[in-house]
Nucleic acid binder design. Structure first.
Lengths: 338, 338
DNA sequence: TTGATGAATGTAAGCGTTTACATTACTTAT
DNA sequence: ATAAGTAATGTAAACGCTTACATTCATCAA
C-alpha cells in the first residue's frame, strides 16, 4: 500500500494538517517545520493521492481536451500547443480522442466532466452549429464548466470561441488567384466543420464578386481519408476525367492540395504554369513537394495561446472576450505565381 | 452543486448502496429496482464523481500514456492507435506530453502515478537504456504499476516491451541497396533512442558484412527539428558541400528522407537513377513526393494492438510475454530500384 | 403455518485528502 | 512578569463514493 499523509505526518512528527499545508504551499508554516516535512516527503518519495485530493479540493487544476483525431496533422499540433501552454501555466490536461462519432463524443463530454475538470477545450468539433445534438451537449456542458472552442464558434453563455477569420482569408487567397487571371478554380474540401463552412463561404464570395459563372460545379467534397494521398489523387483524377477543366486548385487542407499536385505531376501538368495550387493550414506538408506548396497560415500557435489565456482569465473570474478572431495569412510558395 | 448519489437514492426511494450497485452493474438488484433507479439517473443526467469513485475503487480503469511530442507524425499515430484500442477495451487513458526534458518526464511519471492509473505506457522514450536517470524512473514506476514500452526495450520486472526488429529490418534494407550496387550510402538519423540505436546497428552490420570501407564517415546525426524540411535539406546540402559523395541515403525517419529528396531535386539529381532513398516509418510523407518514397513499415498498428493486449493480460493477472517483437518490412516505391 | 434459505436491500465504515475552527506557542508592550 | 495579540499547529468534519456486513423480504419445503 502506498504511503498516506498519515504516514508522513507520523514520521515527521507533525499533524496531517501541517503536511497538507506544506504540500499546498500555505505560508502559515514555520520554515523549520516545512523543511522537516519536506525531508520526509522526499525521503519516502511520497506523492499525494490524486483522487483524495480531488475530493477535498473540488477541482484539481485540470483541463479536459476533446479532440476528434489526434493523428491528424493539424489537430495533433493544436493539441500539442495546448498541452504545452497549459502546463506552462500550472494546469494539467487530460486528452480524449473521440473520433467523429457523435454519440461517442457525448459520452466523452460526460466522462471528462465527471473528472471535475475546470474547463473543457474542444478541438476539431465538426458539427458545432450544424446539428442540434452537438449543440446540445455543448450547452449542457457549459453549465458545469467554461467551454473553449478552437477553430469553431458558438454563441452561448460560458462558451468561448477562438478562431481565424477563415472566410476573409480564403476570400483574399481566392481573389489573389483570380487577379492572376485564373478563374476556373477547383475547390476541394474535406470537412463540413465550422471553419470548413467559413472557408467555403469565403471562396464563394470571391468567385461571386468576380462574377465567375458556374463556379459551383467545381466545388467538391472529399469524404475519404485525407491522410491517404493516393486516394486524394484518384479523387482528383476522377474529376478531371469527368471532363472538368481547371487551372487553379484551392483546398481546405494541405493534404488535399498535395493530392492535386501528385495528380498534376503524374500527368505532366506544370505547376504553377498550368496549374496553381493553394492549400490550407501551412503544415509541414507544404515543404514536402516540389515546388513547395502555397498555403494559408491560420496562426494556430497564436490561437492556442489566446485560448489558454482566455480560459485562465475566465477561471480567475475575469471578464474575457467571448470571441477572439485572428487573421490568417497567405504564404506564397512555388505552387502559385501571383 | 452537482447531484450526488444521495440525491439520486432519495429521489428513487432506495439506499445509496442500491444506486451504487446499479451504477456498477452488480447483478444482485431486482430488475424493477434497477429500472426505477436508472430512470432517475437519466432524468437528472447524473454522473458519479470520478474522484470519489477513485477513492472507493482504488483503480478506475485508466491507463496513463506518456509521450514526448504528440505532434510528431509517428508518435501521434501511436498515441491515436493506443487510445482507440484502450477505449475499445473499456479503459480510459490520460495522455501527457512530456517533451524531451528528462526532469519533466520524471515529474510526469509521478504525476500520472498519483492518479492511480492501472498501467503506464511510454511512447517515444528516448533515453531508455542510455541514461541511468531514465532507467531509474522506469524502475521506480514499475514497482507501482506495469509499464509498457512501445518501440523500446528494457529488462526489468513488471516492464513489458513491444518492438519491431529494427535492426534486422534495417540490415535487410541496407543489404538491398548494397545488392543493387550502391555502396556509398549516407546514413541520417535523428534520434538516439533505443530503436534509433537498433536501426543504426542494422545499417552498420550490413555495411560491414559487405566489407564497405570507411562507411562511418557517412553517418550523420541530425539534431534539428525534423518537422522543418528545409532545415533538413540544408543539413544535407552542407554534407554534400563538404565534399562527401553518396548515391544512396537511408534515414531513421521519413521526414529526413524527404529533406534529402528536396536537396536532390534542387540540384537536379535524378531519383532513383543517381540517388536512391529509403525512409523509415512508412508515414503519410512517403506519398508526398514524386517519386514516392521507399520506406520501412514497422507495423505500428500491430505493435500498439499487441501492447494493449499484453497490458490487459497483465492486469488480469495472466502471464504475458515480456517482449513482443514484430518484423518490419521494406515497402519499395519510386525512390529506389532494386 | 412455520422455519430455513437465499435474494434484495440497507447501514455504516472507510478511502486520503482539505480546511474551518480550536488550541497552543510565541511575541511584544506594558 | 503578564496580558493581549498573532503565528503555528492540531483536531475533526466533510468530500462522494464502494462494499463488508447486517437486515429485511420473498420463496418454498415440511
Amino acid at each position: 500500500m502506498a504511503l498516506t499523509i498519515y504516514d508522513i505526518s507520523k514520521k515527521a512528527g507533525v499533524s496531517i494538517a501541517t503536511v497538507s499545508r506544506v504540500l499546498n504551499g500555505s505560508d502559515n508554516v514555520r520554515p523549520s517545520t516545512r523543511k522537516k516535512v519536506m525531508d520526509v516527503i522526499e525521503k519516502y518519495d511520497y506523492t499525494p493521492n490524486a483522487f483524495a485530493r480531488g475530493m477535498g479540493l473540488h477541482s484539481i487544476h485540470t483541463i479536459g481536451i476533446l479532440c476528434a483525431d489526434s493523428s491528424d496533422l493539424f489537430l495533433a499540433k493544436a493539441v500539442y500547443y495546448l498541452e504545452q501552454e497549459l502546463q506552462a501555466n500550472g494546469y494539467e490536461s487530460i486528452l480524449c480522442c473521440t473520433g467523429y462519432n457523435l454519440d461517442a463524443k457525448k459520452n466523452y463530454v460526460n466522462l471528462i466532466l465527471s473528472k471535475k475538470v475546470d474547463g473543457l477545450i474542444l478541438v476539431g468539433s465538426n458539427f458545432i452549429g450544424t446539428t442540434e445534438e452537438e449543440n446540445q451537449y455543448i450547452k449542457d456542458g457549459s453549465k458545469q464548466v467554461p467551454i473553449m472552442l478552437l477553430n469553431a464558434s458558438f454563441d452561448y453563455p460560458n462558451v468561448y470561441s477562438i478562431t481565424c477569420d477563415d472566410s476573409s482569408t480564403m476570400f483574399a487567397a481566392t481573389s489573389a488567384m483570380l487577379n492572376a487571371g485564373i478563374s476556373d478554380i477547383l475547390y476541394l474540401y474535406d470537412s463540413r466543420s465550422y471553419s470548413g463552412r467559413k472557408k467555403l463561404g469565403g471562396f464563394m464570395a470571391a468567385m461571386e464578386s468576380y462574377h465567375i459563372a458556374d463556379f459551383e460545379k467545381l466545388i467538391y467534397f472529399y469524404e475519404g481519408n485525407n491522410q491517404d494521398l493516393s486516394e486524394v489523387e484518384n479523387f482528383v483524377e476522377k474529376i478531371a476525367k469527368s471532363g472538368k477543366t481547371f487551372h487553379g486548385v484551392i483546398t481546405s487542407d494541405d493534404s488535399l492540395a498535395i493530392g492535386c499536385i501528385k495528380y498534376a505531376q503524374k500527368h505532366n501538368i506544370r505547376i504553377p504554369d498550368e496549374l496553381s495550387v493553394i492549400g490550407y493550414n501551412d503544415s509541414m506538408l507544404t515543404g514536402c513537394c516540389t515546388p513547395e506548396l502555397t498555403s494559408i497560415d491560420n496562426k494556430l500557435e497564436t490561437q492556442t495561446h489566446q485560448l489558454v489565456q482566455t480560459l485562465l482569465g475566465v477561471l480567475s473570474g475575469n471578464e474575457m472576450p467571448k470571441k477572439s478572431i485572428f487573421s490568417g495569412k497567405l504564404i506564397e510558395r512555388g505552387t502559385t505565381r501571383f
